[in-house]
């Protein structure tokens, strides 16, 4: 199984970081990057947005963020309503940004699903394709989120 490259991973991370910068004017930064290996499991926060990919690739990429980060994000976006639905919308929009950037970068080589959002843990995350999915921890203001890249090249 061939592997995805660092540059390809950076496409996803860059998309999330740019989203925060463009929407809120404040950059998000990479706090840590490691592998889900052995007992180290991918961190899943309160809300998650996921896209499945196909074509010459297989797997999924997801963005998971805590409630507090999303509340702060909605505030920065001048969204007065901050219920769970709006938070799901917010992670969905970030997942959509991920999809858009991926589509632009990979073109026809990668088919991308419509973003799926969910609250809490989900069975959708169990079918990992990588032995060690990439976990990139993002920090925006003082809040944490994670981008998990579980994609292989077919």
């Amino acid at each position: 199984m061939a592997d995805i490259t660092e540059q390809e991973i950076q496409v996803f991370v860059g998309a999330v970081n740019r989203y925060f910068e463009q929407m809120t004017g404040e950059k998000a930064k990479i706090q840590a990057s490691f592998l889900a290996e052995g007992e180290i499991l991918p961190p899943i926060y309160d809300f998650t947005g996921l896209i499945n990919v196909g074509g010459q690739y297989q797997g999924c990429i997801y963005f998971s963020a805590s409630k507090i980060l999303l509340m702060r994000l909605l505030l920065a976006l001048h969204e007065p309503r901050q219920n769970d639905l709006h938070m799901l919308d917010a992670v969905g929009e970030i997942a959509n940004t991920l999809a858009g950037n991926a589509r632009e970068y990979f073109g026809e080589a990668m088919t991308i699903s419509v973003p799926i959002t969910f609250q809490g843990a989900s069975d959708l995350l169990k079918s990992a394709v990588r032995k060690r999915p990439y976990i990139i921890m993002i920090k925006w203001k003082q809040y944490e989120a994670s981008v998990i890249v579980d994609v292989v090249r077919k």
Binding site: E6, Q10, V13, L35, Y134
Partner: peptide, 17 residues
Amino acid sequence: RGEDMVRITVLLDGFYE
């Protein structure tokens, strides 16, 4: 930089492989 951390992770994964 943060990007370097991603680079290290990719190299680490290559090692694991």
